[in-house]
Simulated scan of single mutants.
Amino acid sequence: MNYPNEWTQKEFLENKKQLQKEGVDVVLVDTILSPIEKADTITYNPYEMKNYADGTVFVFYCDTGKATLNRLKEYREKFPQHHCVSLKGGRGYWRKNMMLLDENDK
């Protein structure tokens, strides 16, 4: 998979579902000490994050998505064995009740 600089919430949910089927972890990383309600997040901690398996996808978020997008190069240098993506729109555009439905659910 080719990883862009940003994922929207919908892309995050779709890619997480697909990648987990392939055995790849996708982790939402809180860089502002403000967890997103109804989302499984971890707090940014480079020491603990280096323990994740190679190939893990870290999706960083802040309030607007601008700071994490600007720091993406830094994150990629810090975690060369992992994939780093910024959450487009950050916490401000997160819709806590958004979910994906399978074709079978319709």
Rank of each mutant, 00 (worst) to 15 (best):
L19D: 02
T31I: 01
K21D: 11
N5H: 07
Y3D: 08
L33N: 13
L87C: 03
Y61C: 03
E11T: 13
H83C: 05
V29E: 14
R76T: 03
D25A: 13
E14K: 12
F79A: 11
T68Y: 00
K96A: 10
Y44T: 07
E48L: 11
D54H: 08
E37H: 11
G89I: 03
A39V: 06
D40A: 01
E74C: 02
R91I: 00
Y61K: 02
L72K: 08
D63T: 13
I42Q: 07
M98N: 09
G92V: 01
D54Q: 12
F60L: 06
P80R: 06
R91S: 07
H83L: 01
R95K: 15
T8E: 04
K78C: 01
K50D: 14
E77T: 04
R76D: 02
Y44M: 07
E14N: 11
Y75R: 02
N104D: 15
K66L: 10
K16I: 04
K10W: 09
F60D: 04
L19V: 00
V57D: 08
F60E: 03
G92T: 09
Y61E: 09
C84S: 12
R71S: 15
Q18H: 10
V57C: 09
Y61F: 11
D30Q: 05
V59Q: 07
D54I: 04
S34R: 14
Q18I: 07
Q9C: 03
Y47F: 13
L101R: 15
T43M: 10
W7R: 01
N15C: 04
K73M: 07
E103N: 10
K96I: 10
N51T: 04
E48Q: 14
V24N: 03
F60P: 09
C62A: 03
A53Y: 08
K17M: 11
K17T: 15
P35G: 05
N51D: 12
K78P: 00
N2M: 04
M98F: 11
S86N: 13
E11Y: 06
K38D: 15
L33R: 08
Q20G: 00
A39T: 04
E103W: 01
N2H: 10
E37C: 05
N51K: 09
D63S: 15
E77R: 06
K16Y: 05
A39W: 06
Y44S: 07
Y61S: 05
Y44N: 10
S86A: 15
G90E: 05
L101T: 14
K10R: 14
V27M: 10
S34L: 11
P46E: 03
C62P: 04
N51A: 02
N70R: 15
K50S: 14
N104A: 15
I36K: 08
Y47D: 15
M49R: 02
V29L: 08
A53Q: 12
V85F: 03
T64S: 12
S34D: 14
K73A: 13
V26A: 11
K96H: 10
S86C: 09
I36Q: 08
L19S: 06
W94A: 07
V85R: 01
G92C: 08
V29K: 08
K21G: 07
E48V: 07
N2P: 08
D30T: 01
C84Q: 04
E48W: 05
T41L: 00
V29I: 13
I42G: 07
